[in-house]
Amino acid sequence: MADTHSLFFGDEDGIKTPWQILGFALLVLVLMGVSALIESNINPYVQRIIVNCGIGIILGLSLNLVNGCAGQFSLGHAGFMAVGAYISAYLTTVLMPFGGFFQTELGVGVAVVAGGLAAALSGYIVGLPSLRLRGDYLAIVTLGFGEIIRIVFLNISAVGGPRGLPGIPLASNFFWVYLWAVVTFAVIYRLIHSSAGRAILSVREDEISSQSMGVNVSHYKVVAFVVSAFFAGVAGGLFAHYQGFIDPNTFNFNRSVEVVIMVVIGGMGSFSGAVIGAILVTMLPELLRFFAEYRMVIFSALLVLVMLLRPMGIFGRHEIWEASWLPKLKRKPKP
């Protein structure tokens, strides 16, 4: 069980739990303040892009765990997002158990977590083949799972089939999205800097050696997939409750590719890379509105060029706070 403990609390720098709680409370207050400021002062269109960036950050960070840290290659992130979006929206719009509970803000929060859990379950199912496959094969299988999930939703008329599911309560906002973004960052960061995280990184570096060092390779691959899928599901739930409408077409292969581009551009294995990548990928299409026709061409050309000219992405495996020109407060020991 030491394993699970380190998974959630880390074992590296022993920050005591009360401090963590205090820090978290402070953070919530700050986010609430910023949220109020943004909602009263900024144009709703810009707000929408900022929130979309937040959702992108959750997606990018979670995919980075699988693609960057664990060295697997998943091309089905949109599928997990779809599971989270549909399950949570189904709870708040169609099923509505416990009376009006799921219409309240708290209820939506619970629904989003439920969506995340459902996505985690599907992540477990998708993670299983990763035990036997790697590289290209895994990419194709995850792509296939993503598409199968979409085709399944397309054929369920209870959630609208191709017509989509309208009228989802608009409960998520800047505050919730960025709170979850911080939670995602914290959980995955702590995970990677724990003993479990070192095991995950060792799987990326050399599967066979780490196996022979006694690392349970299959276990950690599945852990990476499940955690990653959970947050993708949460992102889907937040997305659904921000858009108010979802249809299967929203979660197609292009969406998965978009998330992959975020991670690749930022630098696979870098947290700050995933964040910056998510912001860039979300904002670029808006900046390029003038060139609407060239937008996708530019996007795909960018992907090829990054691979040819700077395959490690903007950050490589490094983090923003490791930059040499920043004042050296306390260098984290590298894993």
Partner: peptide, 16 residues
């Protein structure tokens, strides 16, 4: 595969 990748990754913040 990971080991291979390590080979081409270079520190990003080599220079200001």
């Amino acid at each position: 595969m990971g080991a291979l990748m390590g080979g081409v990754m270079r520190p990003v913040f080599k220079s200001r």
